[in-house]
Design a protein around this nucleic acid. Structure first.
Length: 380
DNA sequence: GCTGAATGCGCC
DNA sequence: AAAGGGCGCATTCAGC
């Protein structure tokens, strides 16, 4: 079937199929064992509702049973000392994680996506998202588990014989564009000083760092105070107070967000740092959020794609094979001969530095590099 | 038995 | 009262 999207030819990804299948089998066994002991289908919303009701929890017929809702009920049950409900919710979550990690990435994944015993050829789309982000399918290499159940899968994506995987991550790509676009001096200074933004939020909201991180990431997507309170377990008044503090802490960032929203209301689009338009649908109640997210996510995508082009061109100039095998928004993975790793590293770093200087001249770009035999590379 | 919507969840 | 931005994919469920 002809591609409907502009696609990008990238070299295939090598994988250790035996290791992958062994791990998948463990997850399958774990998931089935818990599922068996529970006696109902943890993926069925009505069945999960019924199980929770049997512990005395009152639920509406359309009550969501996703991980956010389960987390809230788990906290409540702990506070009430309802051990039965605590155990039930924990089992449901664990079984779901195991089942998902198997059903999405188990034997079926291998059968459908691996060629010649060890090669994967993902379908890369240059403009997969409205914001200009790339997308990937068949298989989607952008959402392979990284933490929790399923995280070990990453260790079965391996370098070609004699090669290493070179992993490059852009540090805080989206916050940097937020600072640049809004000209918020406080945010810019915090980034320049290498301050931990999640800890800043923890202090601002009077909570611990994990919660501060959750708050920071969520607020960047304009979550409501009500939802954030529900999700963090904090009182909504404290969240509202924290947001007031945040508005005062980053005044230019907030006024920029307001301006973006007004611009989108009037024009039905916003622009990224390259001037590229991201269209916003005024009839969608999310338009307000898209107006802010479009320039930030879109500008980050601009940088990554321009950097990717730079890498391709530089490889041509140096007569090196184009070695980028994965692009995950702010991350690039290259499969390179060990002896050429330093050269490729310089090319990738230059690519992001050059595009960073062009797209956000007042903000430095920092790239973290890792090298190793698998995608879970930790060293360097 | 098939199809599409709804639900849920992995990553950034 | 409640609504967290962008994707792709598996399972469940309702309707035919």
């Amino acid at each position: 079937m002809p591609a409907m999207w502009a696609t990008l030819d990238m070299p295939p990804v090598r994988m250790d199929v035996d290791g992958w299948l062994g791990y998948a089998a463990e997850l399958k066994a774990d998931g089935e064992a818990i599922q068996e002991s529970l006696g109902f289908n943890v993926k069925s919303q009505p069945q999960v509702q019924a199980a929770l009701r049997s512990t005395g929890l009152r639920l509406r017929g359309d009550a969501s049973c996703d991980v956010n809702a389960l987390t809230v009920w788990l906290q409540e049950a702990r506070q009430m000392g309802n051990k039965k409900r605590v155990a039930l919710v924990e089992q449901i979550m664990r079984a779901r994680h195991c089942r998902d990690a198997y059903s999405k990435y188990g034997a079926k994944w291998v059968a459908e996506n691996v060629e010649d015993g060890e090669w994967v050829y993902p379908n890369w789309k240059v403009t997969g998202a409205e914001t200009g982000r790339m997308a990937c399918s068949d298989p989607n290499m952008m959402n392979i588990p990284k933490r929790g159940e399923g995280s070990v899968y990453r260790s079965f994506f391996i370098a070609s014989p004699g090669n290493v995987l070179l992993v490059a991550d852009v540090q805080q790509q989206e916050p940097r564009f937020s600072a640049y676009l809004s000209k918020d001096e406080t945010l810019r200074q915090e980034i320049m000083d290498g301050i931990d933004l999640h800890q800043v939020h923890a202090d601002m909201f009077g909570t611990d760092r994990p919660t501060g991180k959750q708050i920071n990431l969520s607020l960047n997507y304009l979550i409501s105070a009500y939802s954030l309170a529900l999700q963090t377990g904090m009182p909504v008044e404290e969240i509202e107070e924290g947001i007031r503090q945040r508005r005062m802490h980053y005044p230019m960032y907030y006024s920029w967000m307001d301006r973006q929203q007004r611009f989108a209301e009037k024009n039905s689009y916003v622009t990224t740092v390259t001037g590229r338009r991201v269209w916003t649908n005024p009839y969608n109640f999310q338009a307000i959020r898209n107006a802010v997210n479009g320039p930030i996510q879109g500008s980050s995508a601009d940088q990554t794609k321009l950097a990717l082009r730079y890498v391709w061109e530089q490889c041509q100039i140096e007569s090196l094979p184009f070695a980028v095998i994965l692009v995950v928004h702010d991350e690039m993975v290259l499969d390179v001969p060990r002896k050429l790793a330093a050269r490729y590293k310089k090319i990738v770093n230059d690519a992001f530095q050059e595009t960073g200087k062009k797209l956000m001249p007042t903000i430095p770009t920092v790239i973290d590099f890792r090298t190793g035999s698998t995608w879970m590379a930790k060293d360097e």
